[in-house]
Design a protein around this nucleic acid. Structure first.
Lengths: 168, 168
DNA sequence: ATTATTTTTCAGTAATTTTTGAAAATTCGA
DNA sequence: TCGAATTTTCAAAAATTACTGAAAAATAAT
């Protein structure tokens, strides 16, 4: 397989994967393109390579920057802005996890705290089932938090990496 | 907060959360409703409680069954089918993880294996960057696999749960 | 201060995804 | 076997989400 074909395939698959995970196709593709680009790219480069409009590139780049996955790069003597993506996939993953935790897990847990204060008789099975579910989610959330920390740290830890395999 | 309001809130939030994770709103809502329902429900119950059409309920229930999150329940002497969801959130989480691994991670890793066979000179920086990214993802995939196994097993392991906190 | 370049915004349009509802198929009891 | 109850399908409609492109805003050189 030729490099140009392989790159195209990667971008397209990474984009499709994104849609399964609640990320829009173009954003994932821009990210993919930057991950496999040796040098920073301009908005025009991205427009050309992915065949999308200027506005589209601009909006998705901004979102990627908000997610902490892409950085602006200033090249001395150049008027245009350049963009680059973190290429260490571990850092990419941990960054995504941190953001998802902040944007999704934390607010969800806050809601669970509220909902667990629901009034009503626990002998009412509707109330009991509700509380059991809510409290289960709260416990899970706390544990997931621990797991995420481990994942974030585990690329630095050979020991943990090996230890994990023991539990397989 | 009253139980009816709390239930409504839970369903609605679980649905919104679903959309952030690539799951359609209604599917997540049906799942939420079943998780907090003490007894199995019929399609008509779900239609009524969520105010959605019969076809919609039917399709989403089928998807939930495919994901292994909802089961058909036969009630002796009853003509209609009843549905119920696993209420142990750990089992829900591990089931989702298993499915996502099967549907997303495994095919992705297979593709990476293919792409890592790209032809070209590694001294070409375009080729080098591409291969570095692909190989990074392969390594990550293997590690993630281990992590997922740990998560799947960790609810049975007090020891691990405690050990995880050490890495915080 | 003026002008050329580049970035950002956003209303309108396009594409995609989800939902409906009625018809077809299936199931089960009599 | 027939008919009522129930489930499933799917074409059309609705809703949502994403994209375009041109105008406005911002930036920086002269």
């Amino acid at each position: 397989m030729k490099i140009s074909e392989a790159r195209q395939q990667f971008i397209s698959t990474w984009g499709a994967m994104g849609t399964h995970r609640g990320i829009n196709r173009t954003m994932a593709q821009v990210h993919a393109l930057l991950m496999i680009s040796p040098d920073p790219l301009t908005q025009d480069d991205i427009m050309a390579q992915l065949n999308i409009s200027r506005g589209n590139v601009n909006m998705n780049i901004r979102d990627l920057i908000d997610w902490g996955l892409v950085d602006r790069v200033l090249i001395p003597g150049e008027r245009k802005e350049y963009f680059t993506a973190e290429k260490d996939i571990w850092k990419v993953a941990t960054q995504i996890i941190k953001e998802r935790k902040k944007r999704e897990l934390d607010p969800m847990m806050k809601l669970m705290d509220q909902l667990s204060k629901v009034e009503g008789d626990k002998r009412d099975k509707e109330v009991k089932t509700f509380l059991d579910t809510i409290n289960g989610i709260k416990k899970f959330g706390a544990h997931a938090d621990d797991m995420l920390d481990v994942l974030v740290k585990s690329d630095e830890s050979w020991f943990l990496s090996t230890a994990l395999k023991l539990f397989k």
